[in-house]
Simulated scan of single mutants.
Amino acid sequence: MSSYIVRVAGCDGSTTVLLELDDTEAVAARRLAEAVNAASRSGCEPRMRIVAEAEATPIDREYLDRSRDDPL
């Protein structure tokens, strides 16, 4: 199992989560992200990013930190 940062974002907002995924789940999540991104026809339709936590950029980490700090 490895940790992955998953972000879904559109014009009106975004959601970022940290998930523990095994290799099979990570492949499926990446396939889902590719399909969502391919179907997204405008800048406002949601897009999805999945990245291993170990490979995350500072921006990926910032979005994750923001999502943790947002009150419901």
Rank of each mutant, 00 (worst) to 15 (best):
M1D: 09
S2L: 14
S2N: 15
S2P: 03
S3Q: 15
S3K: 15
I5A: 04
V6H: 07
V6W: 00
V6F: 05
R7T: 15
V8T: 13
V8S: 09
A9Y: 02
A9F: 01
G10S: 09
G10P: 00
G10M: 04
G10A: 11
G10I: 06
C11I: 08
C11A: 12
C11P: 05
D12M: 09
D12H: 09
G13N: 08
S14H: 08
T15G: 05
T16V: 11
T16G: 05
V17K: 04
L18V: 02
L19Q: 12
L19S: 04
L19P: 01
L19K: 13
E20V: 03
E20S: 10
L21E: 02
L21A: 11
L21V: 04
D22T: 03
D22P: 04
D23C: 01
D23M: 03
T24K: 13
E25A: 13
E25P: 00
V27W: 01
V27T: 04
A28P: 00
A28F: 03
A28N: 00
R30Q: 11
R30N: 14
R31S: 11
A33V: 13
A33C: 14
A33G: 15
A33F: 13
A33W: 12
E34W: 12
E34S: 14
A35Y: 09
A35P: 01
A35M: 15
V36I: 14
V36D: 03
V36E: 04
V36T: 11
V36Y: 01
V36C: 08
N37Q: 02
A38S: 11
A38D: 10
A39N: 03
A39K: 03
S40M: 02
S40N: 05
R41I: 02
S42A: 07
S42R: 04
S42K: 03
G43I: 07
C44W: 10
C44L: 02
E45W: 13
P46R: 08
M48E: 01
M48V: 13
R49Q: 10
V51W: 00
V51P: 01
A52E: 12
A52W: 07
A54K: 12
A54Y: 05
E55N: 07
A56K: 01
T57W: 09
T57H: 10
P58S: 06
P58R: 01
P58G: 05
I59C: 02
I59M: 05
I59E: 13
I59K: 05
D60Y: 06
R61G: 01
R61P: 00
E62H: 08
E62G: 02
E62Q: 08
E62N: 08
Y63F: 12
L64V: 03
L64G: 01
D65Y: 13
D65P: 03
D65R: 15
R66G: 05
S67Q: 15
S67C: 15
S67T: 15
R68E: 10
R68H: 11
D69A: 15
D69T: 10
D70N: 10
D70G: 05
P71M: 11
L72D: 09
